[in-house]
Amino acid sequence: MRFGRKGGAGFAEGDMTPMIDMTFQLIAFFMVLVNFSEADQNQRIRLPSSELAKPPDGPVQSPITLQLTDKGTIIFGPDETTLAGLRPLLARERTVIDNTPGRSTAEATVIIRADRNAQTGRVQEVIGVCQDVGFEKFALRAKQEEAGLQGGRT
């Protein structure tokens, strides 16, 4: 800050420090909350909700995420495929898992993010294809629901 300007025509310099502090706080907030796992959470999928669906305590072992749209197509990574197209993709995934030390297909978890309006039979068909390829562990994903639907009935 400068003092002693002539003629009373003061050049008012605001103090920038609080603003910069706040801005950095905001950036830190958004950086912490930013979601980089967007590939595994396609926004087209509207998950069913359940109050028992709590986030897992630890990391899921060798997760493979399959997303089933309400139209019956399957999103696997960047690919959107049909049931017939899923089998070779899963077989390739199995080869990768089997060739990785310390990982096995039987212990890999297939996470199924199915749309709430998807047909149950379609979900079962997807599970069937996974079973054919050799996967055994499945996780049906749901959105966490607040308040007791069931709390009222206990």
Partner: peptide
């Protein structure tokens, strides 16, 4: 780019063929 994502949870099922 901020999106509010609600937490998700799993129902684990073991179904060998």
């Amino acid at each position: 780019t901020f999106k509010i994502v609600s937490p998700e949870g799993d129902f684990n099922i073991r179904m060998p063929k």
